[in-house]
Each structure stands twice: as structure tokens, then as C-alpha cells.
Amino acid sequence: MFLKRPAWLRPHRQCQLCDEPADNPRHAICSACETELPWLGPHCRVCAVPLPAHGLICGACQNKPPSFARVEAPWRYTFPVDNLITRFKHQGQWPHGRLLAELLAEHLQHAYDEGLPRPQALLPVPLARRRQRRRGFNQAQMLADWLGAGLQLPVHGDWLERRMETPAQQGLDAATRKRNLRQAFALAPAAEVGGGHLALVDDVLTTGATAGTLARLLRRAGAARVDVYCLARTPRPGDA
């Protein structure tokens, strides 16, 4: 017979934002800080770019529908989510990434309950080999693994390959990003995408150039639908 440990011997999780005790039994964040996160709010029903009202499709998606069907992101890319992502991605502070992935999994489960089609598999966006060696890990792969565990979805980290080293996309405009990505990606010979519903996983969606390139590659290989799951969405340049 095992005795229940007294409360003072049980580990207490601290909120990763305010360092106060986390009153959420599932995550290392307190309820007050979770409420104050920059939740996305009204956004385009396709690319998730912030918009002034719910239920709209932005002009860019109306003029040229992207290859992906839908972007799901819980937050705007602003403080403190941007800080947590930076510390996870560039400083190797993995607990921040795991916390955000767990909250994203809850967001997605709610979306599934509301009618969002559930994909058959998750595909992390591949990272350039040189950048991955320097960083030591691919943040998209880690996010996909955590999401896969939380949502009970298979993860195929070897289906997409980055064939060419391209300059970092951060800080570039949409046209330059698209030029960088031409012929940068390929589908692995073992990938089985025909007729499947797949979801790409990345940390932040900015212009959507990378997601669009990969979704187009998958659709041309026979995928029936491609969605994009990410932690945060940036507004378009010039938008409030």
C-alpha cells in the first residue's frame, strides 16, 4: 500500500512568466498570465493574418488562394510570446517551447471539437543543415513531437527535405522570401502523401512563403489537404 505524499513534499510548478506558483495543474503558467497572453483575436479564415472583424478572408487570400487550406495559431507574435519563442529557439530554453506547444495542442483540440478536420499526420518544417548544426536542434521538429504526443497524431520528420541552404528568412520581405525558397525543398522518396490530410508545423508564420512552398509541394505530390499549425502569427507590414 502506497501512502499519499503530503502537500509540502509535492513538487510545485512555477509560472514561466511571473515566477509565481502555477495554479494550472496541466501547465507551467498561472491563470492570470495565460489570460494576458496576446491571443490572436479576429483573423483571416485562411492565413490567420490579424483582421478587424471575425469571419473574413483577407484580400491577399481572395486574390491568390494559398496552397494550404487553413492556418491555426493561438497568438499574435508580440510580447511575451515573441520573447518565449526567441528564448526557446535561439537560447535552447526548451521548457518555454514545451509550454507553448502544450497550449497550442489545447487550442487545436478545441478547434477539432468545433469542426476543424483532424489531419492524419504532422510534418515539421525542415531546417537547413548548417543552421541545425549551429543551433543543435530543429524547433519545428520539437514542436511537432510535443504536439503529436498531446494530440495522439503521428509525426513524420523525414518526409520533407531542405535541399538548399538559403539565407535566414527573418527580416526579409515576401518577394525575397519567395526567391530564397525556389527549389529549396523536396519530398523524401519514402514520403506517402497521396490523398492524405497533413499539417505543417512551425513556430511563427510571417509572410507564409515557406508554408506556401511546402504546401504546394505536398499538393503536387497528391496530398488532398494541407493545414499549417504554428505558435504565432505576425501582422502584415504596415498593419496595426
Results as ranks from 00 to 15, higher is better:
4 K>E: 09
10 R>A: 04
11 P>C: 00
14 Q>L: 10
19 D>W: 14
20 E>T: 11
22 A>T: 13
24 N>D: 14
25 P>E: 01
25 P>C: 07
30 C>G: 05
31 S>W: 04
32 A>M: 04
38 P>R: 14
39 W>D: 00
42 P>F: 00
43 H>S: 11
44 C>H: 06
47 C>E: 05
51 L>N: 05
52 P>Y: 04
53 A>G: 13
54 H>C: 13
56 L>A: 14
58 C>A: 04
63 N>P: 02
65 P>R: 01
70 R>D: 12
72 E>L: 12
73 A>F: 09
75 W>M: 09
80 P>S: 06
81 V>Y: 13
82 D>P: 09
83 N>M: 06
85 I>G: 08
85 I>R: 04
89 K>Y: 14
91 Q>H: 09
97 G>V: 14
100 L>G: 06
100 L>Y: 03
101 A>G: 15
101 A>H: 11
104 L>S: 11
104 L>V: 15
108 L>Q: 03
113 D>G: 07
115 G>H: 01
116 L>A: 05
119 P>H: 03
121 A>R: 05
122 L>F: 11
123 L>W: 10
125 V>E: 13
127 L>H: 04
127 L>Y: 04
128 A>Q: 05
129 R>L: 13
132 Q>H: 00
133 R>M: 09
135 R>S: 05
135 R>M: 01
135 R>W: 02
136 G>M: 06
138 N>D: 07
144 A>G: 05
148 G>S: 01
149 A>C: 12
151 L>G: 15
152 Q>C: 08
157 G>H: 04
158 D>E: 07
159 W>Q: 01
160 L>A: 12
161 E>Y: 11
180 N>T: 14
181 L>I: 07
181 L>C: 03
184 A>H: 09
185 F>Q: 02
188 A>H: 02
188 A>E: 07
190 A>Q: 07
191 A>L: 04
195 G>E: 00
196 G>N: 10
203 D>S: 07
206 T>W: 13
209 A>T: 04
209 A>S: 11
209 A>N: 13
211 A>C: 10
214 L>F: 15
219 R>V: 10
220 R>T: 14
223 A>W: 06
224 A>P: 03
229 Y>R: 05
233 R>T: 02
238 G>Q: 01
238 G>H: 02
239 D>T: 11
